[in-house]
């Protein structure tokens, strides 16, 4: 179809720079195809992560022309190919090599969040009864493929490096899926306010914008959690009210 120039960031922890590669682009190709082609043709050791190539595993996160995206779901014919296409690693995490970043921080954060704690089963066979209506809100959050693009785009992590005090949009979504689960009995609000830094979120909605699963992160997960934190810590009236009408 056409030869296209790609500017790919090459380097490691110490140093790195953009290098230009030319490759033939054909119909329907996505950015990941181009990266693979470059890898096979002229840069055998170009590091990139990928697995499913169908937007289901969330491995191939990178920044394409400055926006955090999945390489496997970014079609080249939707882009301006007259200019070089830039591909760089996620910027909220340390680089391992080339397009691969060290995302282990995310796994450490998840471990610190209180796990699912269901109420006693409703039935003798250990099962529960739940209405579809009641699980739908949680199902939206559980679509998350953990690509960490929301973490990458969030300026609290990306620019201000609050990794020690702030868990990022992904883990607010994770918290929301647990907190709003019809069976869950754990209370995570104090953690959210204190150690997980939900107050750092200033509602840029960038996480929602980049989410490849179209999860409405800000409006459906973060803000409702902020409101629950308000109930618990900032609003004397609802606090009083909830004494008579508990949440669960």
């Amino acid at each position: 179809m056409a030869r296209v120039t790609f500017k790919i960031w090459r380097g490691d922890k110490q140093a790195g720079e953009f290098k230009e590669y030319n490759t033939e682009v054909s119909e329907g190709m996505v950015v990941l195809d181009a990266v693979h082609q470059i890898q096979a043709e002229s840069a055998n050791d170009l590091a990139c992560r990928w697995n499913c190539k169908a937007g289901k595993c969330g491995s191939c996160s990178a920044e394409i022309n400055g926006m955090p995206r999945l390489m496997c779901m970014t079609r080249l014919n939707d882009m301006n190919l007259d200019e070089p296409v830039s591909i760089e690693p996620m910027r909220a995490f340390p680089v391992m090599k080339d397009l691969v970043t060290d995302v282990s921080w995310n796994y450490r954060v998840k471990k610190k969040i209180k796990p699912f704690k269901p109420r006693l089963p409703d039935n003798d066979d250990g099962s529960w009864n739940m209405q579809q209506q009641d699980v739908e809100r949680v199902q939206e959050f559980r679509k998350c493929i953990e690509c960490f693009l929301c973490q990458d785009v969030c300026h609290v992590l990306r620019d201000h490096h609050k990794h020690d005090e702030f868990i990022g949009p992904r883990y607010f979504v994770y918290n929301a899926a647990l907190e709003m689960h019809p069976l869950d009995e754990e209370d995570r609000l104090a953690d959210l306010k204190k150690s997980q830094g939900i107050g750092y979120c200033n509602i840029t909605k960038c996480c929602t914008k980049v989410c490849p699963e179209n999860i409405t992160i800000t409006d459906n997960a973060i803000i409702p959690l902020k409101e629950r934190v308000v109930d618990e810590f900032y609003d004397p009236l609802t606090k009083l009210f909830r004494i008579f009408k508990p949440r669960k």
């Binding site: 250990g126 099962s127 529960w128 009864n129 739940m130 579809q132 199902q139 647990l178 869950d184």
Partner: peptide, 23 residues
């Protein structure tokens, strides 16, 4: 069946039937 129910006890959220069971 037991393995599937166990997943539910660990937090899996399956689609539901009208009666509220696993679809």
């Amino acid at each position: 069946p037991d393995r599937v129910r166990e997943l539910e006890a660990w937090g899996a959220v399956f689609d539901r039937t009208r009666e509220g069971k696993i679809m």
